[in-house]
Write a protein that binds this DNA or RNA. Structure first.
Length: 407
DNA sequence: TTTCCACAGGAATAAAGGGCGA
DNA sequence: TCGCCCTTTATTCCTGTGGAAA
């Protein structure tokens, strides 16, 4: 049977190559490594010096890279390692392997060790992520490293996501402990968390942080330079209106000099312009992109929460809508318990709720303020949403299927 | 200066769930 | 199938915190 309406509708979703706006959209993504890194001369120079032993065929130093998110730590690491690999290729005596692992999602040393083993194994021969004794996983790791031979550089990006420092100790001390013999191993740890280094046990700190490179935040001028550099690769000439780059740079500078955020903003603004069939990316596209990114960020954070984390967040949404925030933990609890009842779930203990609220704050979804009323009221914490209540409600309702009138 | 309040959060431990090798 | 070993999420217990009041 012929359905003209349906066919007309379907025709609207055909795909055509769209080369307007972007020349090379990938140049704004995290995977792209530019030919030149803007505004990072000092950091690159220090990092370069720390990698120098590799090309000399000497035992590589363990290097610890730190600085806030989006200041070019990962980009600089990839940039220098690409050049190192290129230059090592001309030196017969040096055999270099680099392995980059992002520890986001790897909560423990165990999982990280399994990931490293699997990076070195062929597909199909990979190790399962559970079920083995820890010693078996480490033995597997040393075997794979010995098989690689030569110099191996392991990059652990977002290394602060690993809860325990056992893997860092094992890797940085592997040679001294005699578990590897045929391979010279160097570890490059990258962290956004400035306190991470201080929290390491002294034995790990002294071996992992043989060389340290601190990446400072970009200022608005440096961010503009970064964006201009990518603009020429990513967009067709004269596609961006004059105010677009300064505005993206200003947002990035406001969010603690974060180039990644500024680049994401530019990418999203370009996508919106293309979606609108516009010839140019305008200030309006940037402002819309900013809102959309914020929403995505909240939704992503919410999706990683356990059910009780979601219930606790929903309790705060309810309190926010009642105008009862900032709310003390003890005031969040009864609303949380009501949400649990509505969901047909048993509430967890006060101690666990504290942990859930702390996680929400860590994800940047809520704000927590410490208060102290002294002998009259003691010390306590108040919390409130860190984003518009509509955005959070939308994100959490999608997961919980809540009846808004019930709580 | 000391005491007190109301928690926050660390430490130890348990239970449940899932994968592995024998 | 069973025992082992891991992770995640929870519980209980308990110590630490810091500003106002005494």
């Amino acid at each position: 049977m012929y359905h003209p309406v349906v066919n007309q509708h379907m025709a609207d979703f055909s795909f055509e190559q769209d080369t307007r706006v972007f020349r090379n959209r990938d140049a704004l993504t995290e995977q792209y490594t530019p030919d030149e890194l803007v505004g990072r001369d000092e950091e690159l120079s220090e990092f370069h010096a720390a990698l120098q032993p590799v090309i000399n065929g000497e035992n590589p130093s363990n290097i610890f890279i730190y600085g806030k998110s989006g200041v070019g730590k990962t980009a600089a690491t990839r940039f220098l390692l690409q050049r190192l690999e290129r230059d090592v290729a001309d030196v017969d005596e040096v055999d270099l392997t680099t392995i980059e692992v992002n520890c986001d999602g790897l909560n423990t040393s165990y999982q990280t060790a399994v990931e490293l083993v699997n990076r070195m194994r062929d597909p199909g021969n990979e190790m399962s992520s559970t079920g083995y004794p820890q010693a078996a996983v480490y033995n597997g790791l040393w075997e794979e490293l010995e098989t690689q031979g030569g110099i191996v550089l392991i990059v652990l990006d977002e290394v602060d996501h690993i809860d325990d420092d056992s893997i860092l100790y094992q890797l940085s001390r592997a040679r001294d402990n005699g578990v590897i013999d045929n391979v010279d191993l160097g570890v490059i740890g990258i962290s956004n968390d400035l306190s991470f280094r201080e929290d390491l046990s002294s034995k790990v700190r002294s071996s992992l942080c043989e060389r340290e490179v601190n990446f400072s935040a970009y200022n608005a001028t440096e961010l503009q330079e970064v964006l201009r550099q990518r603009e020429t690769v990513a967009f067709h000439d004269d596609t961006l209106e004059d105010e677009v780059v300064p505005l993206c740079a200003a947002y990035g500078a406001r969010d603690s000099g974060d180039a990644r955020q500024a680049l994401d903003l530019l990418l999203m603004a370009g996508d919106l312009a293309r979606q609108d069939d516009a010839e140019h990316v305008t200030e309006q596209h940037v402002r819309r992109a900013k809102n959309k990114l914020k929403k995505n960020q909240v939704e992503e954070g919410i999706s990683t929460l356990s059910p009780h984390g979601q219930y606790a967040l929903y309790a705060l949404v309810v309190l926010e809508e009642r105008g009862e925030t900032p709310a003390r933990t003890r005031d969040v609890v009864p609303v949380y318990q009501e949400v649990c009842r509505q969901q047909g779930d048993e509430p967890v203990s006060l101690r666990s709720i504290r942990d859930h609220l702390a996680s929400l704050a860590q994800l940047g979804i809520i704000d927590r303020m410490e208060k102290n009323r002294g002998r009259d009221g003691g010390k306590f914490t108040e919390q409130q949403l860190n984003h518009e209540v509509e955005i959070v409600r939308a994100g959490v309702s999608e997961l919980l299927e809540l009846d808004p009138s019930a709580v």
